[in-house]
Amino acid sequence: MSSKIQDQSIVKVGIADLNVVTAPDMIRTSGLGSCVGVVLYNIQKETAGMAHVMLPDSSLGKQASLNKYKYADTAIDILVDRLCSKGIRKSQLKAKLAGGAQMFQINTANDIMRIGKRNVEAVLQKLEEHKIPVESSDVGGNYGRTIEFNPQTGKLKIRTITKGEHVI
């Protein structure tokens, strides 16, 4: 390879969406509320995948054709497969996550309002199943987050409106 500096781009992940990038590219998702942004990465290979998970469990789905990127359990399985297909062993993966807020304090019998917490629990459970260690996380609260991951440094930058910006 030449020493030419490659163009760096930031790959965006939408709601109920996922993608995989390799350095120098970065990966970002915006406006996480109760949704959880899950990053699986391997520093040696400078590769990372990110999912923007909306609901905890695909068994909740009442859809005929399931959008597998929407649920914690199915999205993480796909992310693991995608990364493994790039020559990374599952045992070499690490995870970071952010989001899972409760934006409105709504008192209701309906579980859907506590979805942030359930999303986080579902993600952690799935990562445990895959034996992928969680390096750091920033979850809960009642505010939105935009996250950006750099697969070269393994750093996850978190931007908020009221709590400023920090890196985990």
């Binding site: 509320g33 949704c35 807020a101 939105g144 987050r145 409106i161």
Partner: peptide, 8 residues
Amino acid sequence: DMAGAILT
């Protein structure tokens, strides 16, 4: 807050 977080 952010539109994404509020509207989800």
